[in-house]
Computed example of a mutant assay.
Amino acid sequence: MDAFAALPPALPLAVALSGGADSTALLLACVERWPGQVQAWHVHHGLQAAADDFERFCAGLCARLEVPLQVRRVDARHAPGESPEDAARQHRYAAFDALADASRAAQPIRTVLLAQHADDQVETMLLALSRGAGLRGLAAMPAQWQRDGMAYRRPLLQVPGPAIRAWLRARDERWIDDPTNVDARYTRNRIRADLLPALEAAFPQFRATFTRSAQHAAQAQQLLTELAEQDLQSVGTPPRIEALQALSMARQANLLRHWLASMHGQTPSSAQLTELLTQIAACRTRGHRIRLKVGLGHAERHGDRLLWRPGNGGTGTS
């Protein structure tokens, strides 16, 4: 399983190890390729009774492979109205940040490898489609990125999930299955159980073609981001309303999404963004007031500028 040629990681590296088939295979492949240069990081999410079993499995595997194992325990319960998957992801990356900080005192880790594979990428794209996502959502999971100075890589994104399990079985390796992966309450699990087999039957190459589409979407999104950065430089930060109005509606929307995400960590709904664009177009007099709920705060006019403030917002008036 040579999935590292396109994205060779900087060493030493850490493998995010859950104990499932995918991360188990990734750890085994890395240890074989870079002996003495690999750690395993396990995040105990505290969400189910089986979490202790995951940790014990990871400890046994790492002891057998003579790989250092770092464990971080978190309380990954989600807040009301928050996606359980998003909450777990946020806690997981916060745990990675803490493990990276701890590693700097001894053997600084330069790369963290994650085990998501081609099936995971397809599931992510289908979830994005079901939510009416734009290019950023259709780009699904990036193969590489930086976070707080740490390089993250997903070397298995073009490797089918069944191939990973076949590779493990051929080596007589065990793994541990997460019981929540068959819980039909979760949309991702229904996609895995019902849609992926149908796609396999109708389009046997769907993993490769979906992955290619995600790459195209990621490239297009990169261009939109670069355009938004250029427009933001000319429009100013915070944006000048008159300069915004000089742009096409599509470029205004692109700029506002980028400004809200990059400067304030906010993602407006389609309805919020549409109403904001309508108010900006109508803002032709000094007395025109803009105050709209956007994300977890509100956008408002202040002089000739558009501001975003945290907290509850009102509705637009003119």
Rank of each mutant, 00 (worst) to 15 (best):
L69G: 12
H78I: 00
G46H: 08
H44K: 02
P84L: 04
W41L: 14
R110I: 01
L65K: 04
G19Y: 05
A106N: 06
W34N: 05
R73W: 04
T24A: 03
D120Q: 04
R73A: 15
D120P: 14
V74L: 11
T111C: 14
A63F: 04
A49S: 08
H42R: 11
D52Q: 09
E32H: 07
L113W: 06
R110W: 04
A105Y: 01
R73S: 15
A21S: 12
W34G: 04
A102T: 13
F57T: 13
A100Q: 13
C62A: 06
R92F: 03
A29C: 12
P35D: 11
L113S: 07
G60Y: 03
E66I: 07
L113T: 10
Q70H: 04
L47M: 11
A40H: 02
E66C: 13
H91I: 02
A118F: 12
E66G: 10
D22A: 01
H44G: 00
A94M: 12
H78A: 14
A105T: 14
R33T: 12
C58T: 15
E55R: 14
R56S: 13
L113D: 11
D120A: 09
Q90E: 02
L26I: 07
D75G: 01
R64M: 09
G20L: 01
D86K: 00
H44T: 02
A59D: 12
